[in-house]
Design a protein around this nucleic acid. Structure first.
Length: 625
RNA sequence: GGGGACGUAGCUCAGUUGGUUAGAGCGCUGCCCUGUCACGGCAGAGGUCGCGGGUUCGAGCCCCGUCGUCCCCGCCA
């Protein structure tokens, strides 16, 4: 028999009660976390968002309440009326925040019963994510998930406040809009009013925020939902949230300063001090030193060990002398057996035209000087695992061999990337041995126990870095054309504009990425604000006037009505929270995420729709049989 | 589109070379219990071994297909 809430008013949250509350009359409401029935005495652990408090139901004190206590089951929703009392010294539970007190109940109301769930929020996360996602409302009751969303809220709030304080206005842009040139597949929404025509969901508010700059908005930001119809990953969902901003008359430095300030504010809200300013690295240096454009600085980078070898050495070792020879080093791995090393071989990407040497004993036999020199150059200490990665002359990959002055060639990049990927894979595999990732995990755990007033030093755990000076164009072998490495509104450096036609390879884009701990957090640029430059870029990219006009004519029109120099950036909020929550996937920090196959297991989306709906939308479904 | 891992009770898992009636812990149900807090004790229920086909005297186990979840490549500037 269920009870009505009536006029009963909740006075406290479960997790907030302390010894100081002893003697107070309270009303708590929440879910039955656990029940311990001792016959004439029943203990209920009552859980709400704030935590857990122990309710005591004594048959002598409250026969009615005790009777109801016998009937309740896990996840029943109840209200407990009673008095806070100190527990005896021997009954105190130091493991609970509220362990010094308990509620001596005079009344228990059963507000709702609950079917037995396939798992209990009182226990740790189950392995079966399918079940967790189907019963998401139960999963979200777990304290760990509650904590993640509290964290997300606090971070978002701090970022909003920081940006507002820096003069940014939060402005909403349309969800139903026109395809934006981000390069990903669009989600389309059929128009009922305009048969055969479609809206697109924004991949980002890119064009709108630029138009807001033209509109004299000066500084815009938005915690913006973005949609990209691409395959999912642990760190990618179909819809995700960006901290999106744009500012007028900025130098690149101004954008960096804004981001560093709001990101530090977000981290502080999570209990972590993030030192500013962030270091910078050019794209070329990032490739050379880390073999990736999103370097993880928690471990040593790559070392150029070409000087350790003579040309004869390389010839004997069948290493391409014209390509990079680099060493990667994973600290404290210890000596690996042949079997252990062989297990690592599949982690190396064979397709990049590179090879590796991981047997230093053998190398030292044939080339003792070179082997010693490599370890010296790499700064290898006893027990550090060192691998040499170099170009394989026998393995010709399909890449441009053309070397453009002042620029890494495709083949060079491939060797660096092979080394960089190998480094990343091995650093994950030997995380327990080198311990560098454990610092992050510990910071995350500690930070949760702290607060923004007393943040802890995050400088050894979190390593933000700006990546700058990306090439403006990439050479596409298939079409033998230069294609944009970024969206077509990215400005080249003013100094490079003269070379747009004559020497596209040399043109650098005035854009920037922010990476942290091996993850891309965001990307932005100074935009093109002049119509003539924009036309020049389209021309360089082989986009005809007609095509440009059809896709974003309204934007090109707007450009002609007084466009200030402007630029901005967008950072992945989900990824920021994921990092600070120490979560292995975005699904842990998104309330209702989709699976790797793009399914919402709880809502059961997507589904087919009625003929009537389709007809209204002028849509006919043509499934491949 | 491709590669890999996993799929046995509600959950976490075990299941020998293919061999009789598929097990454990937790959870659940009933009874008992006044100081537990992962309460305890006794008893009990609970299985289309993801699904379909094949091989075999016999399949949870072998083969083929398929579905689902996860990870990765492609893709996502």
């Amino acid at each position: 028999m269920l009870d009505f809430l009536g006029s009963l008013e909740r006075t406290h949250h479960c997790g907030d009660l302390r010894a100081a509350n002893a003697g107070q009359q309270v009303v708590l409401m929440g879910w039955v976390n656990r029940r311990r029935d001792h016959g004439n005495l029943i203990f209920l652990d009552l859980r709400d968002r704030s935590g857990i408090a122990q309710i005591v139901l004594d048959k002598e004190l409250t026969p009615d309440g005790h009777l109801k206590g016998e009937q309740v089951r896990p996840e029943y929703v109840v209200a407990a009326v009673g008095k806070v009392r100190l527990r005896g010294a021997d009954a105190t539970n130091p493991k609970m925040a509220t362990g010094e007190i308990e509620i001596e109940a005079t009344q228990l109301l059963v507000l709702n019963d609950a079917r037995l769930a396939p798992f209990s929020p009182a226990e740790e996360a189950i392995q079966n994510e399918e079940v967790r996602l189907k019963y998401r409302y139960v999963d979200l009751r777990r304290p760990e998930m509650q904590r993640n969303f509290r964290l997300r809220h606090d971070i978002t709030l701090a970022i909003r406040e920081s940006l507002s304080n820096q003069g940014f206005l939060e402005i909403e842009t349309p969800i139903l809009t026109k395809s934006t040139p981000e390069g990903a597949r669009d989600f389309l929404v059929p128009s009922r009013v305009h048969p055969g025509e479609f809206y697109a969901l924004p991949q980002s508010p890119q064009i709108f925020k630029q138009i807001l700059m033209i509109s004299g908005c000066d500084r815009y930001f938005q915690i913006a939902r973005c949609f990209r119809d691409e395959d999912l990953r642990a760190d990618r969902q179909l819809e995700f949230t960006q901290v999106d901003l744009e500012m007028s008359f900025p130098r690149r430095e101004d954008v960096f300063a804004v981001v560093e300030q709001f990101l530090a504010a977000g981290f502080k809200a999570a209990g972590v001090t993030l030192p500013t300013p962030f270091p910078r690295i050019t794209y070329d240096d990032s490739m050379r030193q880390f073999g990736t454009d999103k370097p993880d600085l928690r471990l040593p980078g790559l070392t150029d060990v070409r000087p350790a070898f003579t040309d004869e050495n390389l010839a004997t070792l069948q290493i391409d002398p014209a390509l990079p020879v680099v060493a990667l080093r994973i600290p404290k791995v210890g000596e690996l057996s042949r079997k252990e090393r062989e297990d690592n071989w599949p982690l190396f990407d064979q397709k990049k035209g590179a090879k590796f040497i991981d047997d230093f004993k053998r190398l030292a036999k044939g080339f003792p000087e070179a082997a010693a020199k490599v370890r010296e150059l790499a700064g290898a200490a006893e027990g550090d695992f060192v691998i040499i990665v170099a170009g394989d002359p026998a393995h010709h990959v399909k890449a441009s061999d053309t070397k453009f002055e002042g620029r890494l060639s495709e083949r060079e990049i491939n060797v660096y990337a092979a080394a960089g990927n190998f480094r990343t894979e091995l650093s994950k595999k030997y995380a327990e041995r080198h311990g560098a990732f454990g610092v992050t995990e510990q910071t995350v755990v500690d930070a949760h126990e702290r607060n923004a007033q007393d943040p802890m030093d995050g400088s050894t755990a979190f390593h933000p870095i700006w990546i700058v000076d990306f090439p403006m164009f990439e050479y596409d072998l298939a079409s033998a054309k230069w294609v944009p490495a970024h969206h077509p509104f990215t400005s080249p450096y003013e100094a490079d504009m003269a070379n747009l036609v004559s020497d596209p390879a040399s043109v650098r884009a005035n854009c920037y990425d922010l990476a942290m701990n091996g993850m891309e957090l965001g990307s932005g640029s100074i935009r093109i604000h002049r119509k003539d430059v924009q036309q020049q870029i389209f021309k360089s990219l082989g986009i005809s006037d007609e095509e440009a006009h059809a896709r974003f004519g309204f934007f090109l029109d707007a450009l002609e009505y007084g466009t200030p120099p402007h630029g901005g950036i967008a950072l992945g909020l989900d990824r920021i929270v994921m990092l600070l929550a120490g979560a292995p996937s975005l699904r842990e920090v998104i309330a209702f995420p989709k699976t790797a196959k793009a399914i919402d297991l709880m809502a059961d989306a997507p589904t087919s729709v009625s003929e009537h709906q389709l007809k209204e939308l002028h849509i006919r479904v043509a499934l491949k049989s």
